[in-house]
């Protein structure tokens, strides 16, 4: 769905994007991670037809963003990190205007707007002026505007920045909902733990270069980063601890006796995790829950980046 080949972008002598190659399949949620000044926003703006690349190929659904930006804009929904709103308009008028811009017929608009408002949980604010919305609601309204023409691809630049914890959770739920609807989502964020929760694949960019990319499991495996595991048992804590300590690939074991909880890091694939669970159960440890928090994206990020800017 999204294909980037040998992409370069220069601002004068400054190389903002350096030979970026990326391929994202339909229906994926791609997390684009990088420190400030890494080239994330530049790449996103090139994808969104807002910036002309210095060299390279960038295609969305097979359409070259340089050759036919207007066709790309019809299938793309872009939510910028800093966005302006027409604050004097009502929420429904704001959406109606952008629906009209996308040539959605007048008779269909009301139904589409109602659906979008419901999806973004803004129905209650339908007749409120945009200027009176909270930051989180404005963020959701911008996302609603992005969805108004039912785009195939969503490009979201820091969608959760500036949101309170509740707003972040709601935004994450909304993105998961959109993923279920089959949208391909390209999202950049600094909040790595949240990306790990809903992204199917990630790319880490630093100094304009893509340092690592791929499905999260593959990246974790390739980088040799430990998986964070949490086990809750009913009793027999001592036996459980002994089993964990006996395994060389397990490290950083922490136990909470009162909660009967063990957390540890393990360098292992899915098969090894299944073997560990089976071993515990056959050894007589009454396991209540066994939770794989996955590879910590922060660990990967810290491992592959050196704090360079482009």
């Amino acid at each position: 769905m999204i294909e980037i080949k040998n992409l370069y972008k220069y601002y004068g002598s400054l190389m903002a994007v350096n030979n970026l190659n990326l391929s994202i399949e339909k229906g994926e949620i791609f997390g684009f991670i990088g420190p400030n000044g890494a080239g994330k926003s530049t790449t996103i703006k090139i994808l969104s037809t807002l910036l002309n690349p210095s060299a390279g190929l960038c295609k969305i659904n097979g359409i070259n963003v340089v050759d036919d930006p207007y066709s790309v804009r019809r299938i793309l929904g872009y939510m910028p990190d800093l966005f302006g709103l027409y604050e004097e308009l009502k929420v429904c008028e704001y959406l109606d205007f952008f629906a009209a811009c996308h040539k959605i017929p007048y008779r269909d608009r009301a139904a589409i707007i109602n659906d979008i408002l419901e999806l973004t949980d803004l129905t209650i604010k339908k007749d409120s002026p945009v200027g009176g919305l909270s930051r989180g609601m404005k963020q959701r309204l911008c996302l609603a505007k992005t969805l108004i023409h039912d785009p195939l691809v969503l490009v979201l630049d820091e969608p959760a920045s500036g949101l309170d914890p509740r707003g972040r959770v709601e935004m994450r739920m909304l993105l998961n909902e959109l993923r279920k609807m089959g949208k391909t989502i390209f999202v950049s964020s600094h909040i790595l733990t949240e990306l790990a929760d809903f992204c199917t694949s990630v790319g880490i960019i630093e100094g304009g270069r893509l340092v690592v990319s791929g499905r999260i499991e593959d990246v974790v495996k390739s980088q040799g980063v430990s998986r964070h595991i949490k086990i809750k048992v009913l009793d027999n804590l001592e036996l459980c601890e002994n089993i964990l300590k006996s395994m060389p690939e397990i490290s950083n074991i922490e136990s909470a006796v009162l909660e009967k909880l063990f957390t540890f890091e393990m360098r292992a694939d899915d098969q090894a995790l299944a073997d560990l669970l089976r071993h515990m159960i056959t050894s007589g440890v009454p396991v209540v829950s066994f939770y794989d928090k996955g590879g910590n994206l922060e660990d990967i990020f810290m491992k592959v980046t050196k704090g360079q800017v482009s």
């Binding site: 969104s48 037809t49 807002l50 804009r73 019809r74 793309l76 872009y78 910028p80 800093l82 966005f83 302006g84 709103l85 027409y86 952008f98 811009c101 996308h102 040539k103 505007k145 023409h149």
Partner: peptide
């Protein structure tokens, strides 16, 4: 005014 309010980006991508 559209540039200053950063709404021109939205207009650019709006299909107008």
């Amino acid at each position: 005014g559209e540039k200053e309010k950063k709404t021109l980006t939205l207009l650019r991508l709006s299909g107008l």
